[in-house]
Design a protein around this nucleic acid. Sequence first.
DNA 1: TTAGGTAGTCTCG
DNA 2: CGAGACTACCTAA
Length: 159
Amino acid sequence: MNATTSYQAIIASPIGPLGIVIEDGALYRINFLSDETTLQATDDEPTAQVVAQLQHYFKQADWHFSLPLQPVGTAFQQKVWQQLQQIPLGEVRTYGEIAWTLGSGPRAVGNACRNNPLPLVVPCHRVVAANGPGGFAGQTQGRNLSIKGWLLAHEGVTL
DNA sequence: TTAGGTAGTCTCG
DNA sequence: CGAGACTACCTAA
């Protein structure tokens, strides 16, 4: 989240360096970093698993993550993130569609997506607005949104 | 293009 | 607790 965040691993990827935090053996957070910083390599099994699966995903989009996850959030956010993981690769849903299945509202879903701590693994990039691309990693334009575009293209989706 | 409506969360007090 | 102000939205006019 900020400069004091200590990452177990930082890996290079086609969308820039990714910071990875693991707690109690489960994936806790993934951050998009602006530049390469020192790698605080934690050479344990959970970290190796996460790194390997992420690299596999970048190499081949047709890949289903299988990792212990520990995203911290409210009950509603957990429900939304769970729904996101049901979206098949190569497909997208709108905020409104997700909201409908949960008996909630589109803006609330957008809020939950914005707070998703595990982008890529919890595929918030597969959620778009009814009349536009929506946002990504807190931004409605700029670098993060182009990352969203890259991910969708990587998965064969044309907006 | 805008004006409301909507649901969840956060911040004050 | 309650009011008010935020959003990665949506629909109707």
